[in-house]
Amino acid sequence: MRLSPTENLILELLRENSRRSLTEIADIVGLSRPTVKYHVDKLIESKVISRFTIEVDTTQVDSVTGTRAMFDLQLKRNTCSIVYASIQRWSEVVSAWSLTGDTDMRILLEAANLSILEELRDRLSRHPEVLTVTTSVILKSWREKT
């Protein structure tokens, strides 16, 4: 997709601060709030913007909010794309990978508490393509890069 100069400027402003309001962006770029909303919605629909996020300085907090876990999946056959399609809208999914070796797929999730992770694990284990799910709760993160 070819971006207009306005869309490039909006993207740059959101890269600097993804929590920036549409009103603030509109003031900076000199457009109305509805026009900026139209451009942002267009960027989301065309998948130029895939998600809004924040960066956390882990030296300033004891831990990232929530409980994190890795789900290692063994599948009945090579169907990672089918499994991923069924979980891609889960807000708790942080990352997902297809792997070589005994584990076919690894999923990193972050939820508010263990009971939510347990419910997601149960849902995933009932997926028709999933053979086994092994869960590893993350106790502490020493270093993370995005």
Rank of each mutant, 00 (worst) to 15 (best):
L120G: 00
L117F: 03
V130E: 12
R123E: 14
R121D: 08
T135L: 05
R106E: 05
L108T: 05
V133S: 04
A111H: 06
I107Y: 02
E118H: 09
L124M: 14
D122S: 13
E119M: 06
E110L: 07
T132Y: 06
L120N: 01
E129H: 13
S125H: 11
R126V: 05
R106K: 10
S115E: 15
L120M: 10
L117P: 00
V133K: 02
M105A: 01
M105I: 01
R123A: 12
T134V: 05
R121M: 15
I116G: 02
R126Q: 14
A112R: 12
I107W: 01
S125W: 04
S115P: 02
L109W: 01
S115T: 14
S115G: 00
T132P: 03
D122C: 07
E110P: 03
L114I: 14
A112I: 09
N113D: 15
L109M: 12
T132R: 13
N113V: 06
S136Y: 08
N113E: 11
I116E: 12
T135E: 07
A112Q: 13
P128G: 07
P128Q: 14
L114V: 14
I116D: 08
T134K: 12
L124T: 10
H127F: 01
L108V: 10
R106I: 07
A111K: 04
R123H: 12
L120E: 03
I107D: 04
A111P: 05
D104H: 01
R121S: 15
S136I: 06
L114N: 10
L120K: 13
I107P: 04
V133T: 06
T135D: 01
T134F: 08
D104E: 00
E110T: 13
I107M: 04
L120V: 03
E118Q: 10
R106F: 01
E119T: 09
L117N: 07
E119S: 12
E110Q: 14
T134D: 08
D104W: 00
R123K: 15
V133G: 03
E110W: 01
T134H: 12
I107H: 02
A111Q: 08
E129R: 09
E119Q: 11
A111S: 09
L131I: 07
S115N: 14
H127Y: 00
S125D: 11
L124S: 12
L124Q: 09
L124P: 11
N113G: 06
N113T: 04
R106Q: 09
T132N: 13
L120H: 03
T135F: 02
M105H: 00
P128W: 14
V133D: 04
V130D: 05
V133C: 02
L117Q: 02
R106G: 04
R106V: 08
E129G: 05
P128T: 13
M105T: 00
S115K: 15
L124H: 10
D122Y: 09
V130I: 07
V130G: 09
H127A: 03
L120T: 02
E110V: 11
R121P: 06
S136W: 04
E129A: 14
T135Q: 06
L124E: 08
S136V: 08
D104A: 00
L117A: 05
L120C: 02
V130R: 05
E129S: 13
V130L: 05
A111L: 08
I107T: 07
V133E: 04
V133R: 05
I116V: 15
